[in-house]
Amino acid sequence: MNWLFDFPFIIRINTNAIDRAVRSFAADHAAFFDGIKAGLTNFVGAINWLLNHIPWFVLVVLVFFLGWKGHKRLRSGIAYSILLCIIGMLGLWGLMNLTLSIVLAGVTIALLLGLPVGVLLSGSDRANQAARPVLDMMQTMPVFVYLIPAVIFFGMGSASAVIATVIYAMVPVVRLTSLGIRQVDAEVVEAARSFGSTKSQMLFKVQVPQALPTIMAGINQTLMMAMSMVVTCSMIGARGLGNEVLIAVNRIEISRGFMAGSSVVILAILLDRLTQGWFSGRKNAGDEQQ
């Protein structure tokens, strides 16, 4: 009765051959991948250098002002700057800068790729449908799976971490950019066309500004997804707060884990609220013109 309960048709996949092929591909094109790796590592390094050369109090004051002006409440500014100070007081300022530089590098690249892709997809129903399963896969594939090829091609370190972050975090900005542009009122688009707009005038003067709230929501989501990759990326040698969590897990050091984990949470909250506040602040400024 085994044929009834065991699935009878099993394809024997030669996993070794696939692995070998990928490895030799990586080896054959090492120069290419090393080039990308060097570029990414330098990019992360540059951001980190910049963050390390901003005096801590400047960053605290900056967060205070962004929180205050963005949310129009003095209270928010004070709360956010205190939260930032907590990370510093836990002695994790330098690690925070490391984490932040990987996240910012990943988000920058994700936006540089994702925004144009989103715009392209908005223009064609067929492309949108074709892209859908790919986007679903990028988002639902267990993130650890990205780490394996990333390590093979780019080795351990921040370059692999950035690549994995980009793949995982790019999805929302692509989706929401495409959705936002599609949702622009058809009559507004028709009106713009009737006044003789070229395609690029239509895009930059009408569609993107009209879709901006949705696009901004996508950017915010991308930022949050990148933050959620912080600990995972530490498994392939990304240093920073995530690595601190990983060490704590390996050594079962509860307090160390909580300190680093809380810092990750604080950083995520700050990035989320400050970007949201910046956008809604802009919107309010628009309303006040009346």
Binding site: E187, V188, E190, S194, F195, P209, L212
Partner: peptide
Amino acid sequence: VSMVFQSFGLMSHR
């Protein structure tokens, strides 16, 4: 030519 639309077709961001 120019056109006037039923639901106005105005841009809310301007």
